[in-house]
Design a protein around this nucleic acid. Sequence first.
RNA 1: GCGGGCGUGGUGGAAUUGGUAGACGCGCGGGAUUCAAAAUCCCGUUCCGCAAGGAGUGUGGGUUCGAUUCCCACCGCCCGCACCA
Length: 849
Amino acid sequence: MAVTDDKRANDRFDPRGADARWQARWDEAKSFVANSTSPKPKSYVLEMFPYPSGRIHMGHVRNYTMGDVLARFRRMQGFEVLHPMGWDAFGMPAENAAMEKKVHPGAWTRANIAAMRQQLKRIGFAIDWSRELATCEPDYYGHEQALFLDLMDAGLVYRKESEVNWDPVDMTVLANEQVIDGKGWRSGAPVVRKKLSQWFLKITDFAEDLLEGLSHLDNWPDKVRLMQENWIGKSQGLQFCFRLAGEVPGTNACDIEVFTTRPDTIFGASFVALSPGHPIAEALAAEDPKVAEFIVKARAGGTTAAEIETAEKLGYDTGLEVIHPCDPSRKLPVWIANFVLMDYGTGALFGVPAHDVRDFEFATKYKLPIRRVVAGDISGADGPVIEAETGAGVAVNSSFLDGMTSAKAGAEVIRRAETAGWGSGKTQYRLRDWGVSRQRYWGTPIPIIHCDSCGPVGVPRDQLPVVLPEDVSFDLPGNPLDRHDGWRLVDCPKCGGQARRETDTLDTFVDSSWYFIRFASQPRDRPFNRAEAESWLPVGQYIGGVEHAILHLLYARFWTRALERIGMLSVKEPFAGLFTQGMVTHETYQSADGRWLNPEEIRVSDGGAIVEAASGGGVVRGRTEKMSKSKKNTVDPEPILDRYGADAVRWFMLSDSPPERDLEWSESGIEGAARFVQRVWRLAMAPAANSGEDDALQRKLHRAIHAVGEAIDALQFNKSVAALYELVSEIEKAKPSATRDEAIRTLLLLVAPGAPHLAEEAWARRGESGMIADAAWPTHEPALLIDETVTLAIQVNGKLRDTISVARGLARDEAEALALGSAKVQVQLAGATPRKVIVVPDRLVNIVA
RNA sequence: GCGGGCGUGGUGGAAUUGGUAGACGCGCGGGAUUCAAAAUCCCGUUCCGCAAGGAGUGUGGGUUCGAUUCCCACCGCCCGCACCA
């Protein structure tokens, strides 16, 4: 019996025992606990922390496997590595669960964290669990409240009105996600935009700095930098005031401020449009019920840019007029229009229908003049305008601008405006200040007390944290904090009078804007220890989904800069390297009657068609999409781990797809990965030869060491996997030799970051000392990478006709002579004399006939 | 609507960044081993063609001795758009 068991054990790698055993060993040895005072060079590897939704999904597995491979690789290279994990634990799903399942958001969240932590541990990540944090705990968010007050003291926090999605039936604020087809998700009532007084952070103060900083982020994807650049949206233009031609009822306004990036088109202006939220529009509405009625209509629908910009253009002629600044005899009508955003620029604009798509559409609908002021050249002044012509050209029908290029004309308008004093050149950013107030319970309480005599007052530091009360109920819509008088009603810290706590909580993006600092240093009494934090920061490699390309990454960059400005940190950029990985996708299946089916609910019938396992009914194979609960195409990692073990799952996550692209989950893919794990195991268990040299294998080994290291360094895990497959194949083919023994030993080191349990188990069985997790990464011998012979491609007119094997470094004329001597070339040339011969040394010869 | 990206065999993808298209994996076909199965190993596998040869990287054009790679236009799909995280 025992003999058979031993034999079997050597035959196959058994992850069922090995995974847990090595995870326990790493734990006991504190292998992955990061030492902030280590003399070694430091490397901070971080993946975006998960929202504790309930269970780990394949996207998490892929994300954390990538980071783990890099973290383990860096350790083997001799770095002191910080690779932490935590929980982005505030947010809406917990409140939804509270309403649907009658559980407390805190209980639900903490149970999810416990479950997901166990799941992550099973995958064997090299994580420093001693630094684990959850943003929903007072020992995290209390420090965040202190930082918020620090920013407020520095003048970076202010209060202003802005629009939210308002559900008029539930009388509550909705997230964009909760607005479906313009209606509230629970009440079904049409959503309207409503103004609310909220807290803002002055990210626009840093617009130029955030933009400039992008140019130094060499280890960020170009596309993310470009997206952030466009988001910040720097533009040069003219800001000026239109004088009103008459009185505005109910106000003392005498002008309307506008900004334009196209001052050269100023003579093409045919109307001025106000946002429905503009003070003048609101003043008019107070006097005139028809205006009020229009504004209600214009505010229908949600607040998202996509919704506003695709909605039908609606306008209302106020009857007011403004005077054209360059031609006092011209008067322009003032409209209120639903496509003008109060949050952009000044909340008002002048419309140039001939040269702006939106203005053209609006002018056509409301029969406003369309006047050409830009043409290809001066002779095109009278050309009809069929559609908006948004390009640059030459100014026409524009008085003193006629004949100037668009750029010159724009500069001239700004010059005249500045000289005459009616406007000035201005740099404008599309970036808006960050509204951080959320009318929700499950978030960081904003540490403010509102006093009728003193206004908003910061909670004194010695009273932090402002702890979120847990005794709340979710039987009514809205924020339960508003109804919790025991918590809400407090004395004013300044005057001692009766006052109220701020019941809004912070945007969860605030929580994720500094967690990487807290990971690096977590004293009890402060948000972080400066010197310790700076010893780790910036994060060397940050890995996460591309969906965070703008918001999270921009907010974190801002927050770090804000801390730098107020003197708390001397780090500006939080993430030196960024990598955005693709999603994990899977086929979708639908039954004949349209129900989505889980992959487990289907089977392949005898005929090869897929059918519903329970009923045998027909199944339609749908598109391959991101795994989602609604499409039921998720694959739970847990049973896969049970069946194949951690290393096979990890290996599959690294194989095939380039990490920045989507990875399609497939059963055959995981089986291929599991097979590879066993192949390596068999090699590792093979008896040693102990003698003999194999030069060819030696070269291949060193080539693999080089290729695998380069690929991991560049986060091209699929390529490192392919290089390892090749190496394994070469070792398998090689005859026993001491070189081969060494190659197998090295192979284990090379697979260790990706398949650590297998590597440890094999390492120990082979009698190596210590853990492979602590072993050094192998180095390659550069001389062994170069082959002495190369294959030259022989082309005729760019088409491959022959290949010849020659010594490396063959002279150009010799290569040319050999190529011309090729029989296949002779046939192609058919006696003709080549017109030209191109020789790329050691690569190809192209004969142009 | 605005911004960003992607498109290569049956399939996931590779291609030293302008130089032999299809590495490596999956699948499939054939064979070996086995009482049998599992597991494992070997050979083949872009398409058309018996072959010689020809075609081929979403489509159409361009630059070049040479284009998957650079440029222009188009088609399709995906992501983000400030309260999902």
